[in-house]
Computed example of a mutant assay.
Amino acid sequence: MTRTHVLRLARVREALASGEAQRLRVAAQLSIGEVARGCGVDQSTVWRWERGIRSPRGKPALAYCELIDSLRKQAAPTSSRPESA
């Protein structure tokens, strides 16, 4: 596993621990089953990740990290321009 992979695992585990990962999933209107299929795991696995029962590992964890990173980008404001009064 590369250094980049390890850093990505740390980032996704922090997002899970803080509840950010679940908030992003819910805001994107994605079910646990949809996320699980996208990561190549059973939906009970994602359920356990989101509740802190298990930590994501290996290729599914990296796929989950990619998903969370993409959801973060979608949730980010598209413009940093201040609104006029």
Score class of each variant (00 low, 15 high):
Arg81Thr: 01
Thr2Pro: 11
Val35Asn: 04
Ala76Trp: 03
Cys39Met: 05
Ser79Ile: 07
Arg11Leu: 11
Ala63Gln: 15
Leu71Phe: 12
Leu16Ala: 11
Ser44Lys: 14
Glu14Val: 12
Ser44Glu: 10
Leu71Thr: 09
Arg51Asp: 07
Ala75Phe: 05
Ser84Thr: 14
Ile68Cys: 02
Met1His: 14
Val35Pro: 01
Ser84Asp: 14
Pro56Asp: 10
Pro77Arg: 03
Ala10Asn: 12
Gly52Trp: 04
Ala76Val: 00
Glu20Asp: 09
Asp42Ile: 10
Arg13Val: 03
Ser55Glu: 15
Trp47Leu: 04
Thr78Asn: 11
Glu34Thr: 07
Arg54Gln: 06
Gln29His: 12
Ser70Pro: 10
Val41Cys: 09
Ser84Glu: 14
Thr2Ser: 15
Gly40Ile: 06
Gly19Met: 01
Ala15Asn: 10
Met1Gln: 14
Ala15Thr: 08
Leu71His: 01
Ala28Thr: 01
Gly52Gln: 11
Pro56Phe: 11
Asp69Gln: 08
Trp49Ala: 00
Ala10Leu: 04
Ala21Glu: 12
Arg54Ile: 07
Gly33Asn: 03
Ala85Leu: 11
Gln22Ile: 02
Arg37Thr: 12
Gly33Thr: 01
Asp42Arg: 13
Thr45Trp: 05
Val12Arg: 06
Ser79Trp: 03
Glu83Ala: 13
Arg57Ile: 05
Ser55His: 11
Leu71Asp: 08
Val26Trp: 04
Thr78Gly: 08
Met1Pro: 13
Arg8Asp: 14
Ser70Lys: 07
Ala15Ile: 00
Gln43Trp: 13
Asp69Pro: 01
Pro82Glu: 14
Ile32Pro: 02
Leu67Arg: 11
Ala75Tyr: 02
Glu34Ser: 04
Ala21Tyr: 08
Thr4Met: 12
Leu24Pro: 09
Ala10Ile: 09
Gly19Ile: 01
Ser84Met: 13
Arg23Tyr: 09
Glu66Tyr: 08
Gln29Cys: 08
Arg48Val: 08
Glu50Ser: 02
